[in-house]
Design a binder for these strands. Structure first.
Lengths: 214, 214
DNA sequence: ATTTGAATTACACAGACGTATAATAAGAAG
DNA sequence: CTTCTTATTATACGTCTGTGTAATTCAAAT
């Protein structure tokens, strides 16, 4: 009499991937509290019990999902440099522009990032993921700045990368939260001009949009 | 036989105030999900039912609490200008410095702000509170910039205030999330130098710390 | 003193939460 | 075709959630 739901067996990797993606989806849509065990399982097309088969607890899944989110965001930024020009100034310009425009700057991404922020402050494991990725991004930026044809001490480089990172983060935030208040082109232009002013280089003039993508 | 808990009647204003404060406290400590009706009531020293006597729903209380948070943050920034110098450059410097140091920049404040961010994106009412306060802050900044002794078009002023606001927000964020990674004095110095570079004025040199406070 | 209105407490309810455990069936191995 | 492993489903449990409603008790008005 019992009609048990039919199912397919999948690889562990695939199942974990699906569950992580489902969790991030739900957090993006409805905040952390929307990503319940039942909702995640439903979105991933499995039953709730399976989550505890692949993750020791919901907290465990949350941590893994956050790590995945961070890796993706860093990856999006870094991938810009793959097809970037050789000229250091143009490279920096493209990196800055990419960091304040989609897909890096995006309401959903900011929502996700914010949803996890509280746990980041509380949970040491998540805190370390954050710290690692923050410095990873800043170091990318610092390398690009260091490559510019000019003289700069190490201490000055550090200060400049913090400052530029600040501009980028701030504009990333505002542009993503109030997307209708700014045109993407305007945000890019402001970011380039500001970073240029901080570094005392003509960054906006050196910017060449990437024409290989949309 | 029934031992009913004794209580004092309080003014509506006082009770609402206490409940709002309790809610913000709990959100700061444990995120939005920690601010349950029962926990809020407990913290405020009342029973859960009372919340629905002063607020039509928990969502209502949440909205009001967020509004209070924003007002307080804007107020902290604005109050700096009360005892600020008359010199426009020094005024701007103090405003910028205050925005990236305590009590404006503070891990708890950032945690609170982030906890509400998702609802801000979703709920139109909360969204309007955010927008209003964002522009309120940016207009304060723009006024300070406009008061500087130099020539600047309206369009340039807008761009500069967006850029400076970006730097401030970004440094506020990073300094608050990773307080141990930066000294407060360092963040202030970076903020002043960066804003100065964007506006092309000697802001760091014009900074005079407020000695009337701690 | 008594009455009266409403601020406050007390209790109940239905649903959702994360978790634990037992039952089943898919798919590989023999 | 049969056996065996385990990925997956199913179900139950206790707790917590927001909300609705009735019972009380405070404090002011009379």
């Amino acid at each position: 009499m019992s009609h048990r739901r039919p199912y397919r067996r999948e690889s562990e990797e695939r199942r974990r991937e699906d569950l992580i993606a489902a969790a991030l989806d739900l957090v993006a849509e409805g905040g952390l509290h929307a990503a319940t065990v039942r909702a995640i399982a439903d979105r991933a097309g499995v039953t709730p019990g399976l989550i505890r088969h692949y993750f020791t607890s919901k907290e465990d899944l949350t941590r893994v999902a956050y790590q995945r989110l961070m890796e993706d965001m860093i990856g999006d930024s870094a991938s810009v440099l793959l097809h970037a020009p050789a000229d250091p100034l143009a490279r920096l310009a493209r990196f800055v522009a990419a960091s304040v425009s989609p897909p890096v700057a995006d309401p959903v991404a900011v929502g996700l990032w914010a949803a996890f922020l509280h746990d980041v402050r509380r949970d040491p494991a998540m805190r370390e993921v954050h710290t690692t990725n923050y410095f990873s991004f800043r170091n990318m930026l610092q390398s690009l700045i260091a490559a510019l044809p000019r003289e700069a001490s190490e201490a000055q480089l550090r200060r400049e990368s913090i400052a530029c990172n600040g501009v980028i983060d701030g504009l990333w935030l505002e542009g993503s939260i109030l997307p209708e208040a700014f045109a993407t082109a305007e945000i890019i232009d402001i970011a380039l001009t500001s970073v240029g002013a901080i570094l005392n280089v003509a960054l906006a003039a050196a910017y060449q949009p990437d024409r290989t993508q949309t």
